[in-house]
Design a protein around this nucleic acid. Structure first.
Lengths: 134, 134
DNA sequence: AAATCAAATGCAACTTAATCGCATTTAAGT
DNA sequence: ACTTAAATGCGATTAAGTTGCATTTGATTT
């Protein structure tokens, strides 16, 4: 695994211990272009790792800003690599065909108009459609 | 209840039987300005109505276009009055303080730019912030 | 290298949202 | 009033995620 070194550095930088599960988990996120859920990861490891440990690590990684959580209409939490904690504008794309979710945060911000009295703090945009791979 | 007549008409128009639960359920949606979840409704009726019956009716109402479902980060399904089935642009506001969700679909549409290869079909915008009542 | 200790893990039980099968009841048309 | 498909109530079940607690392990200290 070529990014194993990267993963170890990332963990140390965040003050997290480098356990085998964490290395596998974070490594998987580094090599994919779309977001992953607990179920994706569990299937990937052949259901060997413990459920609560995986969930705890996903939460932990989110806290320290290694991953960020994406909420789509499916109801299950998906995560992608990257720190979103201070971002107030989120843009994601959910493919109807492969059901993968992509982070499009690079795109320019749009100001959305809301009625009088509403005070926006953050904007979350979820686009459904077809992704380049489908 | 002044909108009981409205509710009965709405149900007949959709070919649904006018049961007490449905009249209460739909009436509640007509008199509120924000969305409601199963839990909201259950609490409101003093937990007398059956869980699965409420859920089934919420689904049914969504199918026939009496209600539409709103997904926010909370993971629980919220519903509001109105037909969204043919709409491809959704705008909702979730208040940080009272946790109510408001439908702002009247506002003008914005075109969101996405990277090459992505083909948008619908856009779902969720704004977090403070509502006029808080 | 051994000892230490907080952090991470594994396991089982639990919670919450929602769904399903099936027997019973009820609204609406004949 | 009778009929029947639709709606309801109940209990069991699923799925996502969390929690408490005993055990193990990674990093630090001596």
């Amino acid at each position: 695994m070529k990014n194993e070194e990267d993963v170890k550095k990332l963990l140390s930088r965040k003050g997290l211990k480098r356990t085998p599960l964490r290395i596998a988990l974070l490594g998987r996120f580094l090599e994919t272009d779309h977001s992953l859920s607990y179920t994706d990861f569990d299937a990937l490891t052949g259901n060997t790792a413990d459920k609560s440990t995986i969930y705890r690590n996903l939460n932990r990684f989110e806290q320290v800003g290694l991953l960020h959580r994406i909420e789509d209409a499916s109801g299950v939490a998906k995560y992608a690599y990257g720190d979103n904690r201070s971002q107030h504008h989120h843009l994601h794309f959910l493919c109807d065909s492969c059901h993968n979710t992509y982070c499009l945060n690079k795109t320019e911000e749009k100001s959305i108009k809301v009625p009088e009295g509403f005070q926006p703090r953050s904007v979350n945009i979820l686009i459904n459609g077809t992704c380049p791979n489908c």
